[in-house]
Design a binder for these strands. Sequence first.
DNA 1: CTGGGTGCAGTTTTT
DNA 2: CTGCACCCAG
Length: 754
Amino acid sequence: MATYITLSQMFQALEEVPERAVKLGDTQKEIVEHEKGPLWVIAGPGSGKTETLVLRCLKLLLVDGINPKSIMITTFTEKAGRNLQDRLTTYKYHIAKKYPKVAQVDLFQLRVGTLHSLCNSIMIEYRYPAYRDYTPLDDLEQLLFTYFHSDLAKPPRQFSHEDEEFWNYFSYIWAADWKGEMYLKKGWTPSRWMRARAAQLIFNRIVEDLLDLQMMESRRGVWKTLAEGYKQYRKSLEDNYRVDFAHMQERFLKFLDTPLGKRFLEGSDELTNPGLSHVLVDEYQDTNPIQEAIYLKLANREPHNICVVGDDDQALYRFRGGTVECMINFHNACQRQWGVKVRPTHLVENYRSHPQIVDWINQYVDSFATMKKPGARAKGKPPLLWKSSIDGKWPAVGLISATAKSELADRFAETVKGMLQTGIIAEPSDCVLLMRSTRETRRWAGPFADALREKGVPVYNPRSRSYLEQEEIQIALGALLEVLDPDRSYSAMYVPPRVAQKCDEWRNAYLLASRKYGQLADYVRRAKREIESLGEEQTIPSSLEEVLYHILNHDPFVEWLEVPDRTVRLGQLTRLLEAFSSTPVPGYPGVSRGFLRMSRDERGRISWKWRQMLYHSFISLIQEEGLNDPEDEEVLLPRDIFPIMTVHQAKGLEFPFVFVGGLDEQSYPDAQHEIEEDFSKFRRNPLELAPKEERAKEDMIRFYYVAYSRARYALILLTLQDKMTPGEVSGCYLSLGGKDVNWLKQHVNFLPSM
DNA sequence: CTGGGTGCAGTTTTT
DNA sequence: CTGCACCCAG
C-alpha cells in the first residue's frame, strides 16, 4: 500500500479548490477519518453528506493508499453517480497540482455508480456464466415483456376462474388512480396494459423485498396464482435470456456466493485483483431489502468497512421499493449480521440556508404526530443547526396566500417581478417554483406560469406539455403510420375511439408537414409504393425501426437536430420503437417484432395481424397508458428564465429563492402502500409497518420537506387560505404566527450582495 | 349574486 | 367518472 499524502495535506490542498469555500465541521472530519468498521451517517439537508463521502473516498485513496479497485462508492441515480465521479475527479485534479504523485491514482479503477450499473459491470467483468448472454431490460422493456409474456397479462378471453379471482383481489393495484377506479365502478375487466403494469409492480416487489416464495406457494387462492404467475414470468425471462433490474440484483447476490464472487470479494493477488475492502453508499434512505442484502454481503469481510449515508426525512423513492427501514435500522442489521455494535453519526450542521429556514424546517418535520411514531424517523435524531454564512433580518420564510387560485398566482408573479425590479434577484433563475407536477393545468403550474408570462417574466418549463403533444413526435409517428398502414385500418379494428382520433391527428400533422418538406414526402411515397409492389407472404426488406430511421433522416427532423429538446424527444421515440421491436415473440425465440410481413388476403398491404398487434399493443400503450416525458438530462437552467421544477428534479439541488406551490394536496395511499402491507406477511425479516394512511402521510411530509430544504435565502409558500396539508396545519404556521406575511413589501432591501 | 350547463383534466419519480 | 372553473341567464 502506497500512501501519497497526509490527511492535513489533503485538507490543505482542498482549500484551494474554487467554489468550495466550506471548511469541514468536526463531525464531517470524524467521518472522513474513521478508521475501520461500519459507519452509519444520518445527515440532514445541506449538511454536505455527499461531500463528506467523497472526501472519505479520497482519504482512503490518497492517505491510506487503498487500491482504487478495492473501493466501491454507490448512489441511487445515474445523475447522482455522475456527480460523485465529477467531484472525485475535480478534487483529485486540484490535489495533484500541489502533490504531483497523486496523479498516479487511477480513478477509472474505482467502482463508482449506481448499484445496478456496478452489479451489471462486475458480473460481465468476471464472466459470470449465469449472466453471460443476458440482455438487461429497462423499465419500459420489462413492461413490454410482461405484456407479451406473462400469463397474468393474457387477453381476458383466456381467463380462468383463478384469473378472475386474482385480478379481483389485486384490483387495489390497478384501481389506484381515477381511471382504474372507473373500471372498477363499471365492473370492467382491467385492460391488458393495466394488468401488465400491475404484474410488473408485483414481480419487482417479490424480488426486491426478498419475499418467501415457498410460503406464498403453500397458500391457496390468489397467492398460489401469484406464485405460479411469477414463476412463469421468471422462466420466460430465462428462456429469452433477459433480466430485469430486480433480477439483475438477485443474480448478483447469487454471484457473490459463487467461487467467482468470492474472488471478486476477497481478491486473488494484490496487484491485479486486491479484492473489495471498502463500500461507501450515498442516499441509503432509498435502499430496498435486496440492495441491503447486497451491501451486507459486499462488506462481509472483517472489519466490515461499510459507510452508509442518508437522510430518512428525504426518502422519496417508495415507488421503487425504497423504504427508510434499512436506514433507520442499520445498527440492527450490523448486529444481526456480524454482531457488531454501531452508533449513528448525525450530520446536523446545515451550510445551505438562512437560520430562519433551518429553524422552520426543523419545526415543520417535528410538528407532525405522524413523524413521531416509531419507524417514521431515525431514533434520537437531533435538529439541524444553522451554519451557513447567510444571515440577516429579513423574514426568510414567507407566505403568500389568497382565496382564489388566480389571485394567488397573481400575487406570486407580482412578488417575482418586484424582486427583479428592486434588484433582490439579478435573474429570474435565482428563483424556482417547486410543485408536484409542472404540467400547466389549472391544478398545477398553469395559473403560476400564466401569471408570470403576463407580467413579462419568461418561464422555463420544458416538461409542461406531454410527449405526444409535441410536433416532432406527431409528425414522425404520422409518417410511420402513413407508410405502414395507408388505409388507416385502425378504424376497422377494435381500438378505443380516442386512440383512433389520436392516430388521425398524427396523420394530419404529417400531411401538413409533407407539404413543406418534399424530400420526406418523397421518401414516404416511395416506401408506400415499394410495399404495395410486394407479393403476398413476401418479406419486407426494412424493419419497423428502419422505416423510422429513414423518416428521421429527412427534414424537418435533420434540421431539428439543432434543437436539443426535440433531439432528446426523437431519440426517445427511437428507443421506444427499438424496445418494442426487441421484445421477443412468445414461442419464437430470436424473431423480431419489428420484422414486417405482407398480408395473405390484402394485396400490397402489411399483414393485418401485425397491424392489429401494433395498434393494440404499442400505439395503445403510448396513448392510453401514457409515457413519461423524457427528461433532458443535465440541461443547464437558462439564466434569464424563471424555472418551474418538480421536487424530484430539484432533489440534491439548491436555489437562492424557493417558491413552493400545490400545498393544498391531500395524502392518500397508493398501490405501493397497499402492496407493502399486503406482502409484508411473506417477508423473511418481518417488520412493524405503520398503517398505509400513515405511510402515505409520511411520504407527503417528506416530499415537502425536500422542497422546503432547497432554499438558501428565502422560502416562500404559496397557499390557498388555510388549505395547507400535509397534515397538521398548526405546524406549518408556527413560526409565522398564523398571519399572512406580506413578505416583500415590508422588506425590500434585505438581501446581502449575492 | 346564484344556479345550472359545459368543458376539461386527472401526480410524480427511477434503476 | 368526478370536481372545478368558467360562462351565461335570470
